[in-house]
């Protein structure tokens, strides 16, 4: 493909040196040049729908989101929002000054969200990897377990969250009933409000997300040639050493993609808290996305929500620069 990599740049110089192409059948070189031009045209044509949608649904809204952050946009202006007054950095100062209650809440929420991502991702990865390794060996009932473990991923995430909300119910939910039957608690604690809410959020998130890690890791592990294990076993390597020195290195590229993808999903988490707690999360379990939702659609302070969004966007852009460097191998699209 390298010969066709820069058709636009190559074309003028070639045509300048050959002002009058000889009549008759086109040379091989000319045919190839025509093909490259046609390829470029077709390529552009094929990405038009995707590019147009990206522009309309992602890029332009993102720019308008940036615009909102610098304007005093609330309920009064929602019907005619283009007329909202410009307020400069007011929203940022109001929302992000750690001295104020709003600012302190924003930073606490950002820190809590990072903690949430680390804990959930850690458990998700370990569970997914353990299941993938064990289900890659053969034993009776393997097929059933493989299917069973994918069920939480196959059902809509909100359905799982509804079930957990029922289980964590304070008055007579399954969790409190079980704990008091075992004699572990005297009084029923609240799980969906107060300090325990963060724990509930983490448990439900792990339940919802670990099958995805399992699926991706299983797919990667299945590509590891069986001979590698056999050779290692002949050399006397234990199962544990085989895992560290064969399995882990061979799934590392899948791993890189998986960890970053899940970290981003979790950082932007909205569905789990929304179904578990309702539109307003308890303060102790507030994550970044629900906080912005609450500022925008519960307090109707769009300017503040916009300012927080913009900050979040800048943070994620920094992460995404690293992400793309890691996930998109150099020169991959020129192969």
């Amino acid at each position: 493909m390298t010969t066709l990599s820069a058709p636009a740049a190559a074309a003028p110089s070639v045509s300048a040196s050959k002002p009058k192409p000889a009549p008759g059948p086109p040379s091989k070189r000319q045919r190839r040049r025509g093909e490259a031009r046609r390829g470029a045209r077709l390529g552009l044509l094929l990405i038009v729908p995707a590019a147009a949608l990206e522009l309309a649904i992602h890029i332009i809204p993102m720019m308008i989101g940036g615009w909102i952050a610098f304007h005093d946009l609330d309920q009064r202006h929602i019907r005619n929002w283009t007329q909202a007054p410009f307020v400069g950095l007011d929203n940022f100062i109001r929302g992000l000054d750690p001295g104020t209650a709003t600012g302190a809440e924003f930073f606490a929420t950002a820190g809590r969200t990072v903690l949430y991502v680390v804990i959930v991702l850690g458990f998700t990865w370990v569970l997914g990897m353990a299941a993938a390794v064990f289900l890659n060996s053969s034993f009776r009932g393997r097929g059933i377990l493989r299917t069973l473990f994918l069920v939480p991923y196959a059902i809509p995430m909100y359905v799982g969250c509804i079930a957990w909300a029922f289980m964590f119910n304070q008055r007579d939910g399954m969790v409190n009933t079980l704990l008091s039957d075992l004699g572990l608690i005297d009084e029923n604690p609240f799980w969906l409000i107060g300090d325990n809410a963060f724990f509930a959020l983490v448990v439900v998130s792990i339940w919802s997300y670990w099958p995805f890690a399992f699926l991706m890791l299983l797919a990667a592990i299945q590509n590891v040639p069986q001979e590698a294990y056999e050779a290692a076993a002949l050399d006397g390597a234990s199962n544990w050493r085989q895992f560290w020195h064969i399995t882990l290195p061979m799934v590392s590229s899948a791993n890189g993609a998986l960890v970053l993808l899940m970290a981003l999903w979790l950082f932007n988490q909205f569905t789990v808290p929304f179904v578990l707690f309702g539109p307003a999360s308890p303060d102790q379990a507030m994550l970044v996305s629900p906080l912005i939702f609450s500022n925008s659609f519960l307090q109707w302070d769009f300017g503040l929500g916009g300012a927080m969004s913009l900050l979040l966007l800048l943070g994620l852009l920094a992460v995404s620069a690293v992400y793309i460097r890691m996930v998109l191998p150099k020169g991959r699209e020129d192969d």
């Binding site: 493909m1 066709l4 990599s5 058709p7 636009a8 490259a36 390829g39 470029a40 045209r41 077709l42 390529g43 552009l44 094929l46 990405i47 995707a50 590019a51 990206e54 649904i57 992602h58 890029i59 809204p61 993102m62 989101g65 981003l264 950082f267 932007n268 909205f270 970044v288 996305s289 912005i292 939702f293 969004s309 979040l312 966007l313 994620l316 852009l317 992460v319 995404s320 992400y323 793309i324 996930v327 998109l328 699209e333 020129d334």
Partner: peptide, 24 residues
């Protein structure tokens, strides 16, 4: 295929994936 703006297009596609829905 190779076409102009291919790399920017791939980069934009990849990067929009990581932005939270709440932004939009």
């Amino acid at each position: 295929l190779s076409f102009p703006l291919k790399r920017p297009f791939s980069l934009v596609i990849l990067s929009t994936q990581m932005f939270p829905g709440i932004l939009f």
